[in-house]
Design a protein around this nucleic acid. Structure first.
Length: 472
DNA sequence: TTTTGAGTTGTTCGA
DNA sequence: GTCGAACAACTCAAA
Protein backbone atom coordinates (compact mmCIF):
# COMPACT_ATOMS: atom_id res chain seq x y z
CA UNK A 1 0.00 0.00 0.00
CA UNK A 2 1.51 3.31 -1.06
CA UNK A 3 1.10 6.70 0.61
CA UNK A 4 -2.37 8.21 0.72
CA UNK A 5 -3.02 10.48 -2.26
CA UNK A 6 -4.56 13.87 -1.45
CA UNK A 7 -5.94 16.39 -3.91
CA UNK A 8 -5.14 19.99 -3.07
CA UNK A 9 -7.57 22.00 -5.12
CA UNK A 10 -5.96 25.39 -5.88
CA UNK A 11 -8.46 28.21 -6.28
CA UNK A 12 -7.74 31.70 -4.90
CA UNK A 13 -4.54 30.51 -3.18
CA UNK A 14 -1.99 30.25 -5.98
CA UNK A 15 1.04 29.93 -3.71
CA UNK A 16 3.05 27.42 -1.70
CA UNK A 17 3.82 29.55 1.37
CA UNK A 18 1.24 30.06 4.11
CA UNK A 19 -1.11 27.61 2.48
CA UNK A 20 -2.91 25.66 5.25
CA UNK A 21 -4.67 23.23 2.93
CA UNK A 22 -1.58 22.39 0.91
CA UNK A 23 0.52 21.99 4.03
CA UNK A 24 -1.93 19.56 5.58
CA UNK A 25 -2.20 17.65 2.34
CA UNK A 26 1.57 17.36 2.09
CA UNK A 27 1.73 16.10 5.65
CA UNK A 28 -0.77 13.34 4.88
CA UNK A 29 0.94 11.87 1.84
CA UNK A 30 1.41 12.44 -1.87
CA UNK A 31 -0.33 15.47 -3.29
CA UNK A 32 -2.20 15.86 -6.55
CA UNK A 33 -2.30 19.64 -7.13
CA UNK A 34 -5.29 20.65 -9.24
CA UNK A 35 -6.62 23.85 -10.75
CA UNK A 36 -10.01 23.95 -12.48
CA UNK A 37 -11.21 26.85 -14.61
CA UNK A 38 -14.89 26.94 -13.67
CA UNK A 39 -17.04 28.99 -16.01
CA UNK A 40 -19.92 26.60 -15.42
CA UNK A 41 -20.99 27.56 -11.91
CA UNK A 42 -19.87 31.19 -11.96
CA UNK A 43 -22.93 32.48 -13.80
CA UNK A 44 -22.87 36.27 -13.99
CA UNK A 45 -19.70 36.34 -11.89
CA UNK A 46 -17.71 34.72 -14.73
CA UNK A 47 -14.15 36.00 -14.61
CA UNK A 48 -13.31 39.07 -16.68
CA UNK A 49 -10.63 39.52 -19.33
CA UNK A 50 -7.81 41.11 -17.34
CA UNK A 51 -8.27 38.62 -14.51
CA UNK A 52 -7.97 35.74 -16.95
CA UNK A 53 -4.79 37.20 -18.33
CA UNK A 54 -3.37 37.47 -14.80
CA UNK A 55 -4.54 33.98 -13.95
CA UNK A 56 -2.79 32.55 -17.00
CA UNK A 57 0.57 33.89 -15.87
CA UNK A 58 -0.04 33.06 -12.24
CA UNK A 59 -0.82 29.45 -13.10
CA UNK A 60 2.33 29.30 -15.22
CA UNK A 61 4.35 30.48 -12.22
CA UNK A 62 2.65 28.05 -9.86
CA UNK A 63 3.18 25.15 -12.24
CA UNK A 64 6.83 26.07 -12.46
CA UNK A 65 7.12 26.11 -8.66
CA UNK A 66 5.49 22.65 -8.65
CA UNK A 67 7.98 21.35 -11.24
CA UNK A 68 5.29 20.95 -13.87
CA UNK A 69 3.00 18.87 -11.65
CA UNK A 70 -0.02 21.20 -11.60
CA UNK A 71 -2.99 19.40 -13.18
CA UNK A 72 -5.22 21.77 -15.15
CA UNK A 73 -8.85 21.31 -16.06
CA UNK A 74 -11.71 23.30 -17.47
CA UNK A 75 -15.35 22.64 -16.63
CA UNK A 76 -17.48 21.69 -13.67
CA UNK A 77 -15.57 20.72 -10.51
CA UNK A 78 -18.64 18.83 -9.36
CA UNK A 79 -17.90 16.33 -12.14
CA UNK A 80 -14.14 16.67 -12.51
CA UNK A 81 -13.12 16.14 -8.90
CA UNK A 82 -15.22 13.05 -8.17
CA UNK A 83 -13.96 11.58 -11.46
CA UNK A 84 -10.34 12.24 -10.46
CA UNK A 85 -10.96 10.73 -7.05
CA UNK A 86 -12.14 7.50 -8.68
CA UNK A 87 -9.59 7.27 -11.48
CA UNK A 88 -6.51 8.18 -9.42
CA UNK A 89 -7.38 6.45 -6.15
CA UNK A 90 -7.55 9.69 -4.18
CA UNK A 91 -8.30 9.33 -0.45
CA UNK A 92 -8.89 12.95 0.54
CA UNK A 93 -9.68 16.30 -1.06
CA UNK A 94 -8.44 19.58 0.43
CA UNK A 95 -9.02 23.21 -0.34
CA UNK A 96 -8.86 26.68 1.15
CA UNK A 97 -12.28 28.24 1.42
CA UNK A 98 -13.73 30.87 -0.97
CA UNK A 99 -16.49 33.27 -0.03
CA UNK A 100 -18.41 34.31 -3.13
CA UNK A 101 -22.02 33.09 -3.01
CA UNK A 102 -21.68 30.90 -6.12
CA UNK A 103 -18.50 29.29 -4.84
CA UNK A 104 -20.01 28.63 -1.42
CA UNK A 105 -22.95 26.88 -3.07
CA UNK A 106 -20.74 24.84 -5.36
CA UNK A 107 -18.26 23.82 -2.69
CA UNK A 108 -21.04 22.77 -0.33
CA UNK A 109 -22.52 20.48 -2.96
CA UNK A 110 -19.12 19.02 -3.81
CA UNK A 111 -18.33 18.37 -0.17
CA UNK A 112 -21.63 16.54 0.22
CA UNK A 113 -21.12 14.49 -2.93
CA UNK A 114 -17.57 13.45 -2.03
CA UNK A 115 -18.49 12.47 1.51
CA UNK A 116 -21.35 10.35 0.25
CA UNK A 117 -18.78 8.40 -1.71
CA UNK A 118 -16.57 7.97 1.33
CA UNK A 119 -13.91 10.55 0.47
CA UNK A 120 -12.43 12.69 3.24
CA UNK A 121 -12.96 16.41 2.58
CA UNK A 122 -11.18 19.15 4.49
CA UNK A 123 -11.42 22.89 3.95
CA UNK A 124 -9.26 25.59 5.51
CA UNK A 125 -8.98 29.31 5.95
CA UNK A 126 -6.21 30.37 3.59
CA UNK A 127 -7.45 33.74 2.36
CA UNK A 128 -8.75 35.75 5.31
CA UNK A 129 -7.34 37.24 8.47
CA UNK A 130 -10.72 36.35 9.92
CA UNK A 131 -13.59 34.64 8.20
CA UNK A 132 -16.92 36.48 7.94
CA UNK A 133 -18.55 34.43 10.68
CA UNK A 134 -15.74 35.18 13.12
CA UNK A 135 -16.33 38.94 13.30
CA UNK A 136 -19.56 40.31 14.64
CA UNK A 137 -20.92 42.94 17.00
CA UNK A 138 -21.87 42.36 20.61
CA UNK A 139 -25.45 41.74 19.47
CA UNK A 140 -24.29 38.90 17.22
CA UNK A 141 -24.92 40.77 13.96
CA UNK A 142 -22.22 41.60 11.40
CA UNK A 143 -20.72 45.10 11.30
CA UNK A 144 -22.02 47.59 8.79
CA UNK A 145 -19.67 50.45 9.70
CA UNK A 146 -16.01 50.09 8.88
CA UNK A 147 -14.22 51.86 11.72
CA UNK A 148 -15.64 49.78 14.57
CA UNK A 149 -15.15 46.70 12.40
CA UNK A 150 -11.48 47.58 12.11
CA UNK A 151 -10.91 48.70 15.70
CA UNK A 152 -12.86 46.08 17.56
CA UNK A 153 -13.04 43.32 14.99
CA UNK A 154 -9.40 43.46 13.85
CA UNK A 155 -7.01 45.51 15.96
CA UNK A 156 -8.42 44.55 19.36
CA UNK A 157 -9.43 40.98 18.50
CA UNK A 158 -7.33 37.86 18.90
CA UNK A 159 -4.44 38.10 16.43
CA UNK A 160 -4.85 36.31 13.08
CA UNK A 161 -3.00 33.10 12.35
CA UNK A 162 0.73 33.52 11.93
CA UNK A 163 1.86 32.61 8.39
CA UNK A 164 2.92 29.01 7.77
CA UNK A 165 6.12 28.04 5.98
CA UNK A 166 6.24 26.29 2.61
CA UNK A 167 5.65 22.52 3.13
CA UNK A 168 9.02 20.94 3.96
CA UNK A 169 8.34 17.82 1.96
CA UNK A 170 6.02 18.10 -0.99
CA UNK A 171 5.77 15.00 -3.08
CA UNK A 172 3.50 15.47 -6.06
CA UNK A 173 1.69 12.78 -8.01
CA UNK A 174 2.19 12.42 -11.75
CA UNK A 175 -0.12 14.40 -13.99
CA UNK A 176 -3.39 12.60 -14.76
CA UNK A 177 -3.75 11.80 -18.45
CA UNK A 178 -6.72 14.08 -19.02
CA UNK A 179 -4.93 17.12 -17.62
CA UNK A 180 -4.89 20.09 -20.03
CA UNK A 181 -2.06 22.35 -21.04
CA UNK A 182 -2.16 25.94 -19.87
CA UNK A 183 -2.90 27.16 -23.38
CA UNK A 184 -5.86 24.81 -23.59
CA UNK A 185 -7.54 26.73 -20.78
CA UNK A 186 -7.90 29.55 -23.31
CA UNK A 187 -7.28 32.33 -20.81
CA UNK A 188 -5.33 34.60 -23.13
CA UNK A 189 -7.38 34.86 -26.33
CA UNK A 190 -10.32 36.16 -24.30
CA UNK A 191 -8.81 39.62 -24.21
CA UNK A 192 -8.12 41.54 -27.36
CA UNK A 193 -6.03 44.56 -26.65
CA UNK A 194 -3.67 46.77 -28.52
CA UNK A 195 -1.22 47.27 -25.68
CA UNK A 196 0.27 44.41 -23.68
CA UNK A 197 -0.22 44.36 -19.92
CA UNK A 198 2.89 42.29 -19.22
CA UNK A 199 5.47 45.07 -18.83
CA UNK A 200 3.57 46.42 -15.82
CA UNK A 201 3.78 43.34 -13.67
CA UNK A 202 5.76 40.43 -12.35
CA UNK A 203 3.11 37.80 -11.75
CA UNK A 204 3.09 34.84 -9.38
CA UNK A 205 4.12 34.10 -5.81
CA UNK A 206 7.69 35.24 -6.34
CA UNK A 207 6.64 38.42 -8.11
CA UNK A 208 4.18 39.21 -5.34
CA UNK A 209 6.85 38.71 -2.68
CA UNK A 210 9.26 40.98 -4.52
CA UNK A 211 6.64 43.68 -5.05
CA UNK A 212 5.75 43.49 -1.37
CA UNK A 213 9.42 43.70 -0.30
CA UNK A 214 9.82 46.86 -2.37
CA UNK A 215 6.68 48.28 -0.83
CA UNK A 216 7.86 47.60 2.71
CA UNK A 217 11.10 49.37 1.98
CA UNK A 218 9.99 52.32 -0.13
CA UNK A 219 6.19 52.54 0.08
CA UNK A 220 5.20 51.94 3.67
CA UNK A 221 7.29 54.77 5.08
CA UNK A 222 5.04 57.73 4.29
CA UNK A 223 2.14 55.48 3.28
CA UNK A 224 -0.55 57.45 5.09
CA UNK A 225 -0.04 60.54 3.02
CA UNK A 226 1.71 59.19 -0.04
CA UNK A 227 -0.95 56.57 -0.86
CA UNK A 228 -3.22 59.36 -2.06
CA UNK A 229 -0.82 60.54 -4.77
CA UNK A 230 -1.02 58.38 -7.88
CA UNK A 231 2.46 59.31 -9.08
CA UNK A 232 4.16 58.39 -5.81
CA UNK A 233 5.50 54.92 -5.11
CA UNK A 234 3.61 54.51 -1.83
CA UNK A 235 0.88 52.05 -2.79
CA UNK A 236 1.51 48.34 -2.52
CA UNK A 237 -0.09 47.25 -5.83
CA UNK A 238 -0.74 43.99 -4.03
CA UNK A 239 -4.43 43.75 -4.92
CA UNK A 240 -4.19 41.27 -7.84
CA UNK A 241 -1.81 39.09 -5.84
CA UNK A 242 -4.12 39.12 -2.83
CA UNK A 243 -7.07 38.32 -5.05
CA UNK A 244 -5.43 35.26 -6.55
CA UNK A 245 -3.73 34.35 -3.30
CA UNK A 246 -0.15 34.71 -4.52
CA UNK A 247 0.41 36.25 -1.13
CA UNK A 248 -1.80 35.77 1.92
CA UNK A 249 -3.21 38.66 3.94
CA UNK A 250 -1.62 37.05 7.00
CA UNK A 251 1.83 37.33 5.44
CA UNK A 252 1.19 40.97 4.59
CA UNK A 253 -0.28 41.71 8.03
CA UNK A 254 2.69 40.38 9.99
CA UNK A 255 5.44 41.47 7.63
CA UNK A 256 4.12 45.05 7.73
CA UNK A 257 4.09 44.98 11.52
CA UNK A 258 7.59 43.58 11.72
CA UNK A 259 8.88 46.17 9.29
CA UNK A 260 9.34 48.78 12.00
CA UNK A 261 7.63 51.67 10.27
CA UNK A 262 5.65 54.47 11.87
CA UNK A 263 2.42 53.59 13.66
CA UNK A 264 0.29 55.85 11.47
CA UNK A 265 1.62 54.41 8.23
CA UNK A 266 1.24 50.90 9.58
CA UNK A 267 -2.33 51.40 10.81
CA UNK A 268 -3.38 52.75 7.45
CA UNK A 269 -1.90 49.83 5.60
CA UNK A 270 -3.51 47.35 8.00
CA UNK A 271 -6.81 49.14 7.55
CA UNK A 272 -6.58 48.56 3.80
CA UNK A 273 -6.26 44.84 4.47
CA UNK A 274 -9.25 45.20 6.79
CA UNK A 275 -11.26 46.92 4.05
CA UNK A 276 -10.80 43.83 1.96
CA UNK A 277 -12.18 41.70 4.77
CA UNK A 278 -15.01 44.14 5.46
CA UNK A 279 -16.08 43.85 1.82
CA UNK A 280 -16.00 40.06 2.06
CA UNK A 281 -18.18 40.25 5.14
CA UNK A 282 -20.64 42.55 3.37
CA UNK A 283 -20.90 40.13 0.44
CA UNK A 284 -21.18 37.12 2.72
CA UNK A 285 -24.11 38.59 4.61
CA UNK A 286 -25.60 40.31 1.52
CA UNK A 287 -25.22 37.82 -1.34
CA UNK A 288 -27.06 40.21 -3.67
CA UNK A 289 -24.42 42.92 -3.15
CA UNK A 290 -23.20 42.81 -6.79
CA UNK A 291 -26.64 43.71 -8.11
CA UNK A 292 -28.90 45.20 -5.44
CA UNK A 293 -28.55 48.60 -3.75
CA UNK A 294 -27.87 48.07 -0.05
CA UNK A 295 -29.77 51.29 0.54
CA UNK A 296 -33.19 50.60 -1.00
CA UNK A 297 -34.01 54.30 -1.38
CA UNK A 298 -31.60 54.25 -4.32
CA UNK A 299 -33.97 51.93 -6.15
CA UNK A 300 -35.82 55.03 -7.31
CA UNK A 301 -32.71 56.98 -8.29
CA UNK A 302 -33.13 58.55 -11.75
CA UNK A 303 -30.11 57.05 -13.52
CA UNK A 304 -29.60 58.12 -17.11
CA UNK A 305 -28.95 55.71 -19.95
CA UNK A 306 -26.27 57.40 -21.98
CA UNK A 307 -24.37 55.01 -24.16
CA UNK A 308 -22.10 57.60 -25.70
CA UNK A 309 -21.09 59.04 -22.35
CA UNK A 310 -20.39 55.55 -21.05
CA UNK A 311 -18.20 54.78 -24.06
CA UNK A 312 -16.24 57.98 -23.63
CA UNK A 313 -15.74 57.24 -19.94
CA UNK A 314 -14.63 53.68 -20.67
CA UNK A 315 -12.06 54.77 -23.21
CA UNK A 316 -10.70 57.74 -21.34
CA UNK A 317 -12.18 60.41 -23.61
CA UNK A 318 -14.24 62.52 -21.21
CA UNK A 319 -12.11 65.64 -21.57
CA UNK A 320 -11.24 65.62 -17.85
CA UNK A 321 -7.56 64.67 -17.62
CA UNK A 322 -7.58 62.83 -14.29
CA UNK A 323 -10.60 60.77 -15.33
CA UNK A 324 -9.10 59.98 -18.72
CA UNK A 325 -5.69 59.17 -17.28
CA UNK A 326 -7.27 56.74 -14.83
CA UNK A 327 -9.42 55.02 -17.40
CA UNK A 328 -6.44 54.60 -19.69
CA UNK A 329 -4.26 53.31 -16.88
CA UNK A 330 -6.99 50.75 -16.27
CA UNK A 331 -7.13 49.51 -19.84
CA UNK A 332 -3.42 49.58 -20.45
CA UNK A 333 -2.21 48.06 -17.20
CA UNK A 334 -5.16 46.19 -15.68
CA UNK A 335 -4.94 48.41 -12.62
CA UNK A 336 -5.91 51.86 -11.40
CA UNK A 337 -4.63 53.82 -8.43
CA UNK A 338 -7.10 53.85 -5.55
CA UNK A 339 -7.75 57.57 -5.42
CA UNK A 340 -8.25 57.70 -9.16
CA UNK A 341 -10.76 54.84 -8.87
CA UNK A 342 -12.81 57.07 -6.60
CA UNK A 343 -12.55 60.06 -8.91
CA UNK A 344 -13.45 58.12 -12.06
CA UNK A 345 -16.23 56.28 -10.22
CA UNK A 346 -17.70 59.46 -8.81
CA UNK A 347 -17.56 61.04 -12.26
CA UNK A 348 -19.52 58.18 -13.84
CA UNK A 349 -22.27 57.86 -11.24
CA UNK A 350 -22.61 61.51 -10.25
CA UNK A 351 -21.49 63.79 -13.07
CA UNK A 352 -22.81 61.46 -15.77
CA UNK A 353 -25.61 59.86 -13.69
CA UNK A 354 -24.82 56.48 -15.24
CA UNK A 355 -25.81 53.49 -13.12
CA UNK A 356 -23.05 52.06 -10.93
CA UNK A 357 -23.71 48.64 -12.49
CA UNK A 358 -22.07 49.94 -15.68
CA UNK A 359 -18.96 50.99 -13.82
CA UNK A 360 -18.90 47.78 -11.85
CA UNK A 361 -19.05 45.65 -14.95
CA UNK A 362 -16.39 47.65 -16.85
CA UNK A 363 -14.02 47.43 -13.89
CA UNK A 364 -14.84 43.75 -13.57
CA UNK A 365 -13.58 43.13 -17.09
CA UNK A 366 -10.59 45.47 -17.02
CA UNK A 367 -9.12 45.02 -13.54
CA UNK A 368 -6.56 42.31 -12.96
CA UNK A 369 -7.55 42.51 -9.30
CA UNK A 370 -11.31 42.28 -10.03
CA UNK A 371 -12.85 40.79 -6.91
CA UNK A 372 -16.58 40.28 -6.57
CA UNK A 373 -16.81 41.43 -2.96
CA UNK A 374 -14.47 44.40 -3.24
CA UNK A 375 -15.67 45.59 -6.63
CA UNK A 376 -19.36 45.54 -5.71
CA UNK A 377 -18.89 46.97 -2.23
CA UNK A 378 -16.71 49.77 -3.60
CA UNK A 379 -19.07 50.73 -6.40
CA UNK A 380 -21.95 50.82 -3.95
CA UNK A 381 -19.82 53.01 -1.72
CA UNK A 382 -19.00 55.43 -4.55
CA UNK A 383 -22.61 55.57 -5.69
CA UNK A 384 -23.71 56.34 -2.12
CA UNK A 385 -25.98 53.32 -1.76
CA UNK A 386 -23.53 51.07 0.07
CA UNK A 387 -22.82 50.27 3.69
CA UNK A 388 -21.08 53.10 5.47
CA UNK A 389 -21.10 55.06 2.21
CA UNK A 390 -19.87 58.62 1.91
CA UNK A 391 -22.58 61.29 2.13
CA UNK A 392 -24.04 61.82 -1.29
CA UNK A 393 -23.01 65.46 -1.49
CA UNK A 394 -19.36 64.48 -1.48
CA UNK A 395 -18.92 64.79 -5.23
CA UNK A 396 -15.35 64.80 -6.42
CA UNK A 397 -14.26 67.67 -8.60
CA UNK A 398 -11.86 66.10 -11.14
CA UNK A 399 -9.96 69.34 -11.65
CA UNK A 400 -9.43 70.00 -7.95
CA UNK A 401 -8.54 66.38 -7.27
CA UNK A 402 -5.87 66.38 -9.98
CA UNK A 403 -4.40 69.67 -8.80
CA UNK A 404 -4.28 68.41 -5.27
CA UNK A 405 -3.03 64.87 -5.77
CA UNK A 406 -0.98 65.14 -8.95
CA UNK A 407 0.31 68.71 -8.65
CA UNK A 408 3.25 68.17 -11.00
CA UNK A 409 1.11 66.35 -13.55
CA UNK A 410 3.41 63.35 -13.55
CA UNK A 411 0.53 60.87 -13.49
CA UNK A 412 -1.51 62.82 -16.05
CA UNK A 413 1.37 63.11 -18.51
CA UNK A 414 2.25 59.46 -18.17
CA UNK A 415 -1.18 58.30 -19.34
CA UNK A 416 -2.12 61.23 -21.56
CA UNK A 417 0.88 61.72 -23.84
CA UNK A 418 -1.16 64.03 -26.08
CA UNK A 419 -1.26 66.57 -23.24
CA UNK A 420 2.33 66.12 -22.11
CA UNK A 421 3.57 69.37 -23.62
CA UNK A 422 0.99 71.51 -21.79
CA UNK A 423 2.43 73.63 -18.99
CA UNK A 424 1.30 72.67 -15.48
CA UNK A 425 -1.06 75.57 -15.06
CA UNK A 426 -3.21 74.45 -18.00
CA UNK A 427 -2.82 70.71 -17.67
CA UNK A 428 -5.74 70.22 -15.30
CA UNK A 429 -8.30 72.11 -17.42
CA UNK A 430 -7.00 72.15 -21.00
CA UNK A 431 -10.24 73.57 -22.42
CA UNK A 432 -9.47 76.81 -20.59
CA UNK A 433 -5.98 77.16 -22.05
CA UNK A 434 -5.44 80.06 -24.45
CA UNK A 435 -5.30 79.16 -28.14
CA UNK A 436 -1.63 80.09 -28.39
CA UNK A 437 -0.66 77.73 -25.55
CA UNK A 438 -2.65 74.91 -27.12
CA UNK A 439 -1.01 75.51 -30.50
CA UNK A 440 2.46 75.50 -29.00
CA UNK A 441 1.64 72.26 -27.21
CA UNK A 442 0.39 70.67 -30.41
CA UNK A 443 -3.16 70.32 -29.14
CA UNK A 444 -6.40 70.88 -31.02
CA UNK A 445 -9.29 70.70 -28.58
CA UNK A 446 -12.00 68.42 -29.90
CA UNK A 447 -9.49 66.74 -32.23
CA UNK A 448 -6.34 65.62 -30.42
CA UNK A 449 -8.00 65.80 -27.01
CA UNK A 450 -11.75 65.90 -26.34
CA UNK A 451 -13.70 68.86 -25.04
CA UNK A 452 -15.32 68.24 -21.62
CA UNK A 453 -18.20 65.78 -21.81
CA UNK A 454 -20.29 67.68 -19.27
CA UNK A 455 -20.11 70.95 -17.38
CA UNK A 456 -18.87 70.30 -13.85
CA UNK A 457 -21.04 72.81 -12.05
CA UNK A 458 -24.23 71.91 -13.87
CA UNK A 459 -23.73 68.17 -13.63
CA UNK A 460 -22.92 68.45 -9.94
CA UNK A 461 -26.16 70.32 -9.30
CA UNK A 462 -28.05 67.81 -11.43
CA UNK A 463 -26.67 64.98 -9.28
CA UNK A 464 -27.69 66.72 -6.05
CA UNK A 465 -31.18 67.27 -7.48
CA UNK A 466 -31.39 63.63 -8.54
CA UNK A 467 -30.42 62.57 -5.05
CA UNK A 468 -32.97 64.87 -3.44
CA UNK A 469 -35.69 63.35 -5.62
CA UNK A 470 -35.14 60.01 -3.87
CA UNK A 471 -35.49 61.45 -0.38
CA UNK A 472 -39.24 61.93 -0.30
C1' DT B 1 -32.45 52.05 28.19
C1' DT B 2 -31.20 56.23 26.51
C1' DT B 3 -28.12 59.28 24.67
C1' DT B 4 -24.31 60.75 22.20
C1' DG B 5 -21.25 61.17 18.66
C1' DA B 6 -19.02 59.50 14.77
C1' DG B 7 -19.02 57.98 10.24
C1' DT B 8 -12.22 56.30 4.43
C1' DT B 9 -10.92 59.35 1.00
C1' DG B 10 -15.20 66.56 -0.67
C1' DT B 11 -16.70 70.97 -2.46
C1' DT B 12 -18.34 75.43 -2.30
C1' DC B 13 -19.26 79.74 -0.49
C1' DG B 14 -18.79 83.63 2.14
C1' DA B 15 -16.53 86.01 5.87
C1' DG C 1 -5.25 83.11 0.85
C1' DT C 2 -7.42 80.85 4.82
C1' DC C 3 -11.03 79.19 7.56
C1' DG C 4 -15.43 77.41 9.09
C1' DA C 5 -19.93 76.22 8.02
C1' DA C 6 -23.29 74.14 5.16
C1' DC C 7 -24.41 70.48 2.49
C1' DA C 8 -29.00 65.40 4.68
C1' DA C 9 -30.24 62.53 7.11
C1' DC C 10 -29.50 58.24 9.34
C1' DT C 11 -27.40 54.25 11.25
C1' DC C 12 -25.26 52.27 14.78
C1' DA C 13 -21.49 51.46 18.14
C1' DA C 14 -20.60 52.39 22.60
C1' DA C 15 -20.78 54.87 26.84
Amino acid sequence: MSDPLVIHWFRQDLRLADNPSLRQAAAKGRVLPVYILDDVNAGRARMGGASRWWLHHSLAALNHALHGKLALFKGDPLEIIPRLVRSCGVTAVHWNRCYEPWRIRRDGRLKERLREEGTVVDSFNGSMLREPWEVYKADGLPYRVFTPYFRKGCLNAAPPRYPLPVPERLSCADLPQESLSLDELGLLPCIRRDIPLEPHWHIGEKGAAERFELFLKHGLPGYREGRDYPARPNVSRLSPSLHFGEISPNTAWYAAQENGSGQEDLDHFLSELAWREFSYSLLYYNPELPAVNLDASFNRFPWIENHEALLRWQHGMTGYPIVDAGMRELRQSGYMHNRVRMVTGSFLVKNLLVHWHEGESWFWDCLADADLAINSASWQWVAGCGADAAPYFRIFNPVTQAQKFDPDGVYLRRWLPELAALPDRHLFAPWEAPGSVLRESGITMGKTYPLPLVDLKLSRQRALDAYRSTRT
